[in-house]
Amino acid sequence: MLQKYIAKSPWVFHVNTGGCNGCDIEILAALTPRYDAERFGVKLVGSPRHADVLLVAGPVTHNVIEKIKRIYEQTPDPKLVIAIGACSMGCSVFQDSYCIDGPLDEVIPVHVYVPGCPPRPEAILKAVLMGAEALPEILKKAEKGELPPAPDIKEKLERYTKYRKKVAEEASE
C-alpha cells in the first residue's frame, strides 16, 4: 500500500559523507526550475525521519561512518538508498586514501547507483523515480531473502569508536 504512494511522491533526504560538494550542488540543481523535480512529487526534506529516499554522495570518510549508519537506521521502512556519483560507487580519486571507509555499499545496503563525477541532475532525478517505481519489487525480494545481506561494518565501527575515545581522552588531559 505504502509503496504505491511513495512512487507518486518520493521524499528525499540528502547526505554528504565527505565528498567534494559537486554531487550535492547537482542534487540541489535537480530541484530548481530547469529540472523541476517537484513535478514528480520529489521533495527535499530536513530530517531522515521524514524521508523515503536517501541520496548519499561522497566516499564515506572515517569520521562520518557512524553517523551515516545512524541516519540509515533513522529512516523509516520501506526505504531506498541511492548512491550518487563515482565516489560513493567506488571512491573515485580517493581510492587508496588511509581515511576512507567506503565505498558506500560496504557500509549500508544500496539499491540504486548513479555513475558520473558528478552525475547530471537529469540522471539523479531519473534514479529517484526508477528506484521509487522498483520499490515493490525490491521489498518482495527482501521478504524472500534474495537481496544480498547488509554489509558487516563491525570492524570499521570499532576502529571509529576507539579513535573517538582517544580524542576525548587526549582532550581531557
Binding site: 565527505g18 565528498g19 566516499p59 570518510t61 572515517h62 569520521n63 562520518v64 580519486v93 580517493f94 587508496d96 586514501s97 588511509y98 581515511c99 576512507i100
Partner: peptide, 11 residues
C-alpha cells in the same frame, strides 16, 4: 572539523 578529511596530500 574533520568530517571531510580525505587524506589528499598523502594521496
Amino acid at each position: 572539523s574533520g568530517g571531510v578529511h580525505r587524506g589528499m596530500e598523502a594521496l
